[in-house]
């Protein structure tokens, strides 16, 4: 039982990273029906930007709270800028043409980001400052929870909660949901559709970048290839929850994190991707709309 709970804690921590990336997939998909395969690589870009600030620029020597604010906010903005450039130059010209062409382009963008990161930051593994965050924690019964785990999950939930409040509670968020249904009708409301698409790319990139920095802080090691599997797992999470569905992406991320953690704990770490992608295939066969996806019209 103790082990089970311990795996649960780890699973929820990792799951919250996946959930952030999955949210990005889902927001973009909801609006332009694009699976943005570069989503995981945006997370990698965020991780490296954070690393550059903390290690190369030496911001790790600042007071901890200040270092963390910089290490989150600047990569989130920087990655958003990268995603806007990708949108304008790669996706926008194809937006009203072929969905397949834009999907292939997304795969291309994923590779482009990886190779550019390799050029800039090198092919070898880089390390986040290992002693930046305290490694202490506390026991909840038999379960050891570190303060870092608690903080990372808390920040993830905060970001996701902010996202939900924005989408559900503001007129601009309502416009995002309306775009999931009818672009032309949205234009007739005076909604700048291109502007909302840009906003979705900004938000998706910011969530991905935040998860990247968290991954760096949690696992310490980062590499230019880290976004690939992360992206696929988050995509699985989004599909599991019902792509286009915001609460679904969050729940899907947590479920994938838990599944991975239990597999690693009870079976072996090398089996986790077999299980995760097995789930993806099963969901696609049995319930393609995902756990939370109802009809297409209920998305977001």
């Amino acid at each position: 039982m103790g082990a089970f709970l311990q795996y649960t804690v780890i699973g929820l921590t990792v799951g919250s990273f996946y959930a952030l990336v999955a949210l990005g997939y889902t927001i973009v998909y909801g609006i332009i029906r694009l699976i943005n395969f570069a989503q995981g690589d945006l997370s990698m870009v965020g991780a490296f930007l954070g690393w550059t600030l903390l290690v190369s620029f030496g911001f790790q020597r600042l007071p901890l709270y200040l270092a963390l604010i910089i290490a989150f906010v600047v990569p989130m903005l920087g990655t958003a800028a990268v995603n806007i450039v990708i949108l304008q130059f790669a996706y926008k010209p194809l937006l009203r043409k072929s969905l397949l062409a834009i999907l292939i382009t997304a795969l291309g963008m994923s590779l482009l980001l990886q190779n550019t990161a390799e050029l800039i930051w090198g092919p070898s593994i880089q390390a986040y400052p290992p002693n930046l965050l305290p490694s202490t924690g506390f026991f909840m019964g038999p379960v050891h929870v570190t303060y870092v785990q608690l903080a990372l999950v808390f920040v993830s939930l905060l970001l996701m909660g902010g996202m939900v409040l924005f989408v559900q509670g503001t007129t601009v968020g309502t416009a995002m949901r309306a775009l999931a249904v009818d672009h032309d009708a949205a234009r007739l409301m005076g909604i700048n559709v291109d502007g909302i698409i840009r906003l979705a790319f900004v938000l998706g990139a910011m969530l991905a970048a935040a998860s990247g920095v968290m991954l760096g802080l949690y696992y310490v090691q980062i590499q230019f290839t880290m976004g690939f599997l992360l992206g696929l797992r988050a995509f699985t999470a989004a599909v599991l929850g019902g792509i286009g569905n915001i609460p679904g992406a969050m729940a899907g991320g947590m479920l994938i994190g838990l599944l991975e953690s239990y597999t690693t704990g009870y079976l072996s770490g090398s089996w986790k991707d077999v299980i995760v992608f097995g789930v993806l295939i099963t969901v696609l066969i049995v319930k393609p709309t995902g756990l939370f996806g109802e009809r297409v019209a209920e998305r977001m």
């Binding site: 007129t171 309502t174 416009a175 949901r177 309306a178 999931a180 249904v181 009818d182 032309d184 009708a185 949205a186 234009r187 007739l188 409301m189 005076g190 909604i191 700048n192 559709v193 019209a297 209920e298 998305r299 977001m300």
Partner: peptide, 30 residues
């Protein structure tokens, strides 16, 4: 199109095109 709305022209399209997944109030807000 969105700038034309801002100029003061409003269009109720064929087939109504209301946002079915939003509430009546949210449709009006939009």
């Amino acid at each position: 199109a969105h700038l034309i709305v801002a100029m003061g022209l409003s269009h109720v399209p064929e087939g109504r095109r209301i946002f079915g997944i939003l509430t009546v109030e949210e449709n009006l807000n939009l």
